[in-house]
């Protein structure tokens, strides 16, 4: 990997200051995607600013119907949290199936959504649960956060501080995973609250998105059979060595049905 200047900061203000001073700086959270990307020389930031020393970015709390998870909370911590398991079991389950145990010990919620890999798991939950992404500057709705492949609404000096997940009456995440990486070839997060259904789809297109046609079919008829008649357009589906566009479109429906069944 190309050399860079490493800096570990202990406050959000220091992080912002460091990145504003850097020529081409990048924040690193858990580094489980960023370091391999830098090793392959696909990224070569001049400065790497480590958010790992900022205590206020870590931790999980439940307040009423909202589960707040700090951006630097690891996947292992979310998976093992009795608070998350109790409030939104599907979210704990999702976190416990990202990558492998060693990756989960370092990878973080904030890092995952800021990177916005088209096959990442967390974006499906952020969209499916209608979560809110809190930063040092503002609050961004899950629907508006993911803007394209590896693109988000974040500004260069904006730091995710936490994600606020509303509890759902029922929710489930199902993914058809790549057996080597455990990334989602297609993953679908379904949540039902007060009769309204939301569907977050990852792996299928350039970035996670709401499955509007699926939601339409499931609102009022929250059964797996309701998915049968939905047409999933293949034009925007990813197509690569792992799966064709047609196969991904098929998987979107299959994973949605499985998730709906798991909700009941």
């Amino acid at each position: 990997m190309y050399n860079f200047s490493y800096q570990k900061v202990s406050s959000i203000a220091d992080a912002v200051d460091a990145i504003q001073k850097a020529e081409d700086g990048k924040f690193v959270a858990g580094g489980q995607t960023m370091l391999p990307t830098m090793k392959h020389r696909l990224a070569s930031p001049s400065d790497v600013i480590d958010l790992g020393g900022i205590d206020e970015l870590k931790g999980i709390s439940v307040d009423g119907d909202t589960v707040t998870i700090g951006a630097m909370t690891t996947h292992a911590e979310v998976a093992a949290s009795s608070d998350v398991q109790g409030a939104i079991p599907a979210l704990a389950n999702l976190a416990g199936n990202i990558g492998d145990p060693a990756v989960r010990n370092r990878g973080t919620l904030g890092g995952s959504i800021a990177n916005n890999d088209p096959a990442a798991d967390y974006p499906a939950a952020v969209i499916g649960l209608g979560a809110t992404v809190k930063t040092n500057k503002r609050e961004i709705s899950g629907d508006e956060f993911f803007t394209g492949m590896f693109e988000t609404a974040l500004e260069d000096d904006e730091v995710i501080t936490a994600v606020l997940f509303p509890k759902a009456d029922a929710s489930a995440y199902m993914k058809f995973e790549n057996p080597a990486s455990r990334y989602a070839i297609v993953g679908v997060f379904v949540a039902s609250s007060g009769g309204a259904v939301k569907v977050g789809v990852t792996g299928a297109t350039a970035c996670a998105h709401r499955g509007m046609r699926l939601e339409e079919a499931l609102n009022g008829n929250f059964t797996a059979d309701a998915v049968d008649g939905v047409e999933i357009p293949i034009e925007k589906m990813n197509s690569d060595i792992h799966a064709s566009a047609e196969y991904r479109a098929h998987l979107v429906k299959v994973m949605t049905k499985r998730a709906v069944e798991a909700c009941s």
């Binding site: 490493y6 570990k8 580094g31 489980q32 370091l35 391999p36 480590d50 790992g52 060693a102 990756v103 010990n105 370092r106």
Partner: peptide, 10 residues
């Protein structure tokens, strides 16, 4: 942890 995906300084 995967020591190939962690910096020594970390």
């Amino acid at each position: 942890v995967k020591s190939c995906t962690t910096l020594a300084v970390q």
